[in-house]
Simulated scan of single mutants.
Amino acid sequence: MKIGVAGAGAVGGYFGGVLAQAGNQVVFLARGAHLEAMKAQGLRIESAKGEFTADGIFTNDIHSFKGLDLILFCVKSTDTKSVAEQLKNILDDSTRILVMQNGIDNEEILSEMFGKERVLSTATYLSASVKEPGIIHQFGEPRLPIGTLNRTADPFAKEVVAVFNHSGVKSWASDDIICTKWQKLLWNVTFNPLSAIVKADVGQILDDPLLRRTAGSIQKEAFLVAKKKGIRIAPEILEQIFMGAEKRARNHKTSMLQDRLKGKRMEIESLCGYLVREGERLRVETPVLQAIYVILTFIEQQELNL
Rank of each mutant, 00 (worst) to 15 (best):
G9Y: 09
V11T: 08
F15L: 08
A20I: 06
V27C: 08
R31F: 05
G32N: 02
A33P: 00
M38W: 09
L43E: 02
G56V: 06
S64R: 14
F65V: 07
L72R: 06
C74R: 06
C74S: 08
A84I: 02
T95W: 14
L98F: 11
M100T: 01
N102M: 04
L110W: 11
L110I: 02
S111T: 09
K116G: 06
T122W: 12
Y125L: 15
V130M: 07
E132Y: 03
E132Q: 10
D154L: 03
F164H: 00
N165W: 09
N165L: 07
S167T: 06
S167A: 15
G168I: 04
V169K: 08
S171H: 05
A173D: 00
I177Q: 02
I177P: 04
T180A: 12
Q183E: 11
Q183A: 09
T190N: 04
S195W: 09
I197K: 05
Q204G: 09
S217P: 00
E236I: 05
I241W: 06
G244Y: 11
K247H: 11
A249V: 13
M256A: 07
Q258M: 08
R260D: 04
K262W: 09
K264L: 14
E267L: 05
L275P: 01
L275Q: 00
E280H: 12
P287N: 01
L289I: 04
I299S: 03
Q302S: 14
